[in-house]
Nucleic acid binder design. Structure first.
Length: 469
RNA sequence: GCCACUAUAGUCUAGAGGUUAGGACGUUGGCCUCUCACGCCGAAGACCCGGGUUCGAUUCCCGGUGGUGGUGCCA
């Protein structure tokens, strides 16, 4: 049974890159009828953020990525929060010490700084050969210590990665990294191995930053007599060719995009395509379709740059697909914030806006005409293409009012054009400007009347008539 | 510095030892149209550089360069 996991640190938000890693792990598991596990890696107590776990869970929920085991829902391999598993790591660390694959280290940070100053690029195994009695003495005296992994000094290690192929690393480039910190907590380097094994993870899907240290993890699996997982490393999502998408830029959080008016699935759909291709030229895919076509051989070996413009396009596809009702509901917060209490038919406004918004936040700009009428610039009546001007507007305004009072506005405006020997476009341009005071509106004159209602439309036309005197 | 990974238009990508190097976003021309959008039809735009292998390389190999990552009591 395939089991994958997403193991974020609780930093206070769900990064888009993290979301994609989670998505791939989820898609892969579901594609193979397996389980997807959520594990919280909170071993760095100094970076603890309150409520961070809830934020991650809620974001995954909105994204439609449902985990089978993890915090809150539980499972047979818990606890799923590393800080609650402290004793487990200590037990295996002791076992590694016994087998010689790890050792106590009492070196102070000062000493470490010192050897690095002298040109050392890694720890010098200074504490590797301490005698058993000395070790016990120093521990008894309460001296702080860490537990380090004992990496071979020579030789190379080759392992297979599903996207990068065979990866070879020279042991001399690897350090005897710390497994257990002086506060008794494990480092990622240790905890990920213990937990992945204990939680039955079969496929380890994570960022490339671990590509080179994976041999160290394999050494641990081997020392403990455990089977190694299949590795699938992922290149990062970039902001541009030299920077990763980062929280600093304010555009790396899943929730940030939700606030910008992106639909959750549009985001998921878009990032699925960043670094992976379904080989069928199909870009708009539901979660079920993503699961169905997901395959690791479509995974990219190079990093990709996040293109919000393209995500907007994809989002617009999903917005158009919403029912009128759904769009109207989604638009409410924007109406409430920017255009509350207007004397218009909001439901109809939603109909007009739906095909004109790529993201929900476009509502603000698209509906800006609602605030344009009072004291609008009368020069708007001048239109080069239609050869209209203020004088023409003045001569037509009375008939525009009459037309609005008639039962059939469309027919009345058409008749008006014929009677005056004008093109329909000329009359309609003037009519729409007189009605809205805006160069661009999400619909024509007749639609605007429907939006405002006959009374408000007449009020506006009469106001314009006064100004044209 | 050392080590690892990587390289097709502005961006996401497809691709095979011989192709008119395919698709999408964006850009752009046009159509539609009472404005703005939608929609439809076109256009421009790419194989990082240098060697090698080969009849032939953008594709395979080596080197370089660029980019990223690792080199933490972060993950």
């Amino acid at each position: 049974m395939v089991r994958t996991r997403f193991a974020p640190s609780p930093t206070g938000y769900l990064h888009i890159g993290g979301l994609r890693t989670a998505l791939y792990a989820y898609l892969f598991a579901k594609k193979h009828n397996g389980k997807f596990i959520l594990r919280i890696e909170d071993t760095d107590q100094t970076r603890e953020v309150d409520g961070a776990v809830d934020i991650i869970i809620s974001a995954l929920n909105k994204a439609g990525i449902n985990y089978d085991e993890g915090p809150i829902v539980g499972g047979d391999h818990g606890p799923y929060v590393q800080s609650e598993r402290k004793d487990i790591y200590l037990k295996y660390a002791a076992q590694l010490i016994k087998s010689g694959d790890a050792y106590y280290c009492f070196c102070s940070k000062d000493r470490l700084a010192e050897i690095h100053e002298k040109g050392a690029t890694k720890y010098d195994k200074h504490c590797l050969h301490l005698s058993e009695t000395e070790i016990q003495d120093r521990i008894a005296r309460g001296e702080p210590y860490v537990i380090r992994q004992n990496i071979p000094e020579t030789g190379t290690h080759t392992y297979h990665d599903e996207v990068f192929g065979d990866v070879t690393v020279d042991y001399k480039d690897l350090e005897d990294n710390i497994l257990i910190k002086s506060d008794g907590m494990p480092t990622y380097n240790f905890a990920n191995v213990i937990d992945d094994h204990l939680m039955g993870i079969t496929h380890c899907i994570r960022g490339v930053e671990y590509l080179m240290s994976t041999p160290k993890y394999n050494l641990l699996y081997d020392a403990l007599g455990w089977e190694r997982p299949v590795y699938i490393h992922l290149q990062p999502i970039m902001r541009d060719s030299q920077h990763k998408l980062s929280k600093r830029d304010g555009d790396a959080g899943f929730e940030d995009f939700l606030k910008k008016g992106f639909l959750p699935h549009a985001i998921v759909n878009y990032i699925a395509l960043l670094g992976w291709n379904p080989k069928n030229n199909c870009e708009k895919m539901s979660m079920a379709e993503l699961i169905n076509s997901f395959s690791i051989d479509g995974l990219q070996k190079s990093s990709s740059i996040f293109d919000e413009t393209k995500m907007r396009w994809l989002n617009s596809l999903y917005i158009k697909e919403l029912s009128a009702e759904e769009f109207h509901n989604a638009a409410q917060p924007y109406y409430a914030e920017y255009y509350p209490d207007k004397n218009i038919d909001y439901k109809y406004l939603s109909e007009l806006l739906q095909s004109r918004c790529e993201v929900l936040a476009d509502i603000k700009e698209r509906a800006a005409f609602l605030d344009a009428f009072d004291n609008f610039d009368l020069e708007l009546f001048v239109n080069k293409k239609w050869k209209t001007d203020r004088a023409m507007a003045k001569s037509l305004i009375d008939d525009c009012i009459k037309a609005t009072e008639s039962a059939d506005l469309g027919a009345a405006l058409e008749t008006l054009a014929v009677d005056r020997g004008l093109k329909k476009g000329q009359v309609l341009w003037i009519y729409r400007i007189a009605l809205t005071g805006a160069a661009a509106t999400p619909g024509g004159g007749e639609e605007m009347v429907k939006l405002f209602g006959k009374n408000e439309a007449l009020r506006r036309l009469k106001a314009v008539k006064d100004r044209l005197k």
